[in-house]
């Protein structure tokens, strides 16, 4: 909406008068009132904050942003709608772009999990697409099984102390180690998410019951069938959300 030169001029004028950025932009004829309203509604949008920082730091010029976004879109095969979803910062729109498997139950589970990570753990999250796996080893595994019309295995796993990013936030305390209490916090979070998933399934007359959560140290999650892994980065800590639906899952000590 604004060129760099126009933004610079507004900044310069703002330094000499007690007026808001948007008011000056309208006075100077750079923006309409409607455009200012639109921009104000986007305040707090992480994409815009990121772009502003990139420009402020001199890494890119405003004129180059569209080209860079275009390259990113082409390289990753994203559509215009996908890019707009990413720019929006709207978690539900972003989930719809990235969280896609060949099975609606997995899609539904991962969507519920990511929304609740965003709600209870942190808004500083990023995630890729879920992938199929048969074996994965992690240092720390908090899990719960659900059984009934479908058998479901769910766990959140991580290496080193990365699981604490979930434990600390959910219990609202700082654990020093991934000990029994830290696992309890992660298990309780999984239990809540699983309850919401079970509730969603029950609207389709699918009943599943939750078993008490359990945790494992330094173990391998194996199956002869397959399960999905949804990698999620929370505050720069990497966790895996693993879900197996109607797949026999075994946990073996590594």
């Amino acid at each position: 909406m604004l060129t760099t030169a126009q933004a610079d001029r507004i900044n310069m004028l703002q330094a000499t008068m007690d007026k808001r950025f948007g008011d000056i932009a309208v006075e100077q004829g750079f923006l309409t009132n409607e455009q200012v309203s639109t921009l104000l509604s986007l305040q707090g949008n992480s994409y815009l904050k990121f772009i502003q920082t990139v420009i402020d730091k001199g890494y890119l010029k405003l004129e180059d942003i569209d080209n860079v976004v275009g390259d990113f879109k082409r390289e990753n095969g994203y559509s215009y709608e996908d890019i707009e979803a990413l720019k929006s910062g709207d978690i539900d729109r972003i989930i719809n772009v990235f969280v896609k498997t060949d099975n609606e139950y997995y899609d539904s589970y991962f969507a519920i999990m990511i929304r609740n990570i965003n709600r209870f753990i942190s808004t500083d999250i990023s995630f890729g697409s879920p992938y199929v796996c048969k074996e994965i080893k992690n240092d720390c595994i908090a899990s719960q099984c659900l059984n009934g019309d479908h058998d479901v295995f769910v766990c959140i796993s991580a290496d080193n102390k990365d699981l604490l990013v979930v434990a600390d936030a959910y219990a609202k305390e700082e654990f020093e180690e991934v000990d029994e209490d830290a696992y309890d916090s992660v298990c309780e979070f999984i239990n809540c998410v699983n309850g919401l998933f079970a509730s969603k399934l029950s609207t389709s007359d699918i009943d599943i019951d939750m078993l008490p959560p359990v945790f494992f140290n330094n173990s391998i999650i194996k199956t002869n069938d397959s399960y999905y892994v949804q990698p999620v980065t929370i505050c720069n800590k990497q966790i895996n959300v693993i879900v197996g639906i109607d797949s026999a899952i075994f946990i073996e000590e590594a």
């Binding site: 239990n191 699983n194 309850g195 919401l196 079970a198 009943d207």
Partner: peptide
């Protein structure tokens, strides 16, 4: 209860 435990 966790949500979804209708039977229980």
């Amino acid at each position: 209860t966790a949500a979804g435990q209708r039977g229980k």
